[in-house]
């Protein structure tokens, strides 16, 4: 590769980093607990540089897929058939934000989320947290778009069913521990 070509390649890689680093860091931090996120993100970019010529135009799902495998390698002994679980925010959001979901509903939603299988949580998180389209999420999981759509549909059904159960159990009352003082 000539020097100008190498320089242009490096510049494209820097641009990719600038465009995707925050999203990638968030993607990883939603899934790891132990402060390894920067190290995992570094591994992803190292892999991306090695395979830079293979990267698709929409690189973000590809980077997420590498991150997912890297995290699985490190934290789970890599059982690939198991979903990579996604954690939940520890505290309810401040009511003064644009988040209009009332505290009670948020409790029910969190409870329903925790009752789901990790595989359901993973497909829901790719859309709800990571903001991916169905096609991008399918790329991240390494499955067909139709497969992802089916899995997402079922996960949403189970979330709704769990929410219905939760509403029945709580009877609309808020749990004291979640009420802001």
């Amino acid at each position: 590769m000539s020097e100008p070509d190498a320089g242009a390649r490096a510049e494209r890689f820097r641009r990719l980093h600038a465009e995707t680093y925050p999203d990638l860091l968030r993607f990883v931090e939603r899934r790891v607990f132990d402060g390894d996120s920067e190290d995992i993100v570094s591994t992803v970019f190292l892999t991306a540089w090695r395979r830079f010529d293979d990267l698709p135009d929409d690189a973000r799902p590809w980077l997420f897929a590498v991150a997912r495998k890297t995290m699985a390698n490190r934290t789970r002994g890599l059982l690939r058939r198991r979903a990579l679980d996604v954690r939940l925010t520890a505290q309810p959001r401040d009511e003064g934000t644009d988040d209009t979901l009332r505290v009670g509903a948020r409790i029910d939603l969190a409870s329903a989320w925790r009752s789901l299988r990790p595989a359901d949580r993973e497909v829901l998180a790719l859309v709800a947290f990571d903001g991916l389209t169905g096609e991008q999420a399918a790329t991240t999981l390494g499955c067909r778009r139709s497969t992802f759509a089916m899995r997402l549909g079922r996960a949403r059904q189970r979330l709704q069913a769990a929410l219905a159960d939760s509403a029945h159990v709580h009877d609309g009352k808020e749990q004291p521990s979640w009420i802001r003082t």
Binding site: L25, R26, F27, E29, R30, R87, L88, T89, A90, R93, D99, L101, A105, R106, L109, A110, W113, L124, A125, A128, F129, L159
Partner: peptide, 9 residues
């Protein structure tokens, strides 16, 4: 609505 529970929001 789930987005309100995003740990990296």
């Amino acid at each position: 609505q789930l987005n309100s529970l995003d740990p990296a929001r």
